[in-house]
Amino acid sequence: MVFRRGRGFLTRGETVQAVDRVSLALGEREVLGLVGRSGSGKTTLGLILCGALRPSSGQISSTAGRGPRCQMIFQDPRESLNPRMRIREIIAEPLVLQGVDRRERSERALQIAAQVRLDPALLDAYPHELSGGQRQRVAIGRAVIARPDLIVADEPCSMLDPTVSAEIVELLAELNRREQVALVFISHDLAQAASFCRRIGVMHAGKLVELGPADSITSAPSSEPARELLASSRARELLTYAG
């Protein structure tokens, strides 16, 4: 994926290779962690997987014959939820495209709220009335209501408090098991990804430098970027104390 940056009236700009020759196969219902530092190309790859960005070269194919049906969960739910829509409408919006009528949409929103453990009383509220964790549950509800084949969650916990983050990770793991949806979990925290992803890809400077079972990456990382991420990770097993 090539981006052009800094192009203005007077400058030709330079190009940035945000994602560089990545090959990746994702199984049905698989949970893949995609980890790397800021700027390593994780989000760009996530957007390509979702079909939200067309790669400059290369292709994506799916066994489904059509492209995989994809939903994305973003880092900042404050910016990804329409402030003028009620929560009920936000969750059910993907169904509008499928031509589902209003009454059924409302019913489905209620079921989804129970699934993502969102208080049904909040369905009539607006996004600003919710906490960060509640907003992220709404974003997850909106992603699962259309029964996608794949959900790409891009740093869904980085704006949340630690205990709320842990609840969201647990919810994603549960949805993956119950809803039979594949999940790509993007994070800069290797420990968080390794807490529930069986396979992990490590990105660095646009390249997928390591791809393998979470256990081997957390016990014997083979690339320098993976070693660096592991050394800085916040895993409970790796807590160290000053002095």
């Binding site: 630690p162 205990t163 983050s165 420990a191 968080q192 807490s195 992803c197 979470a214 895993a235």
Partner: peptide, 16 residues
């Protein structure tokens, strides 16, 4: 609960 929120490396992973 704050300590419990620190991820463990395989907390929610299903055993293969």
């Amino acid at each position: 609960s704050l300590i419990a929120a620190v991820p463990r490396l395989a907390a929610f992973r299903e055993k293969p």
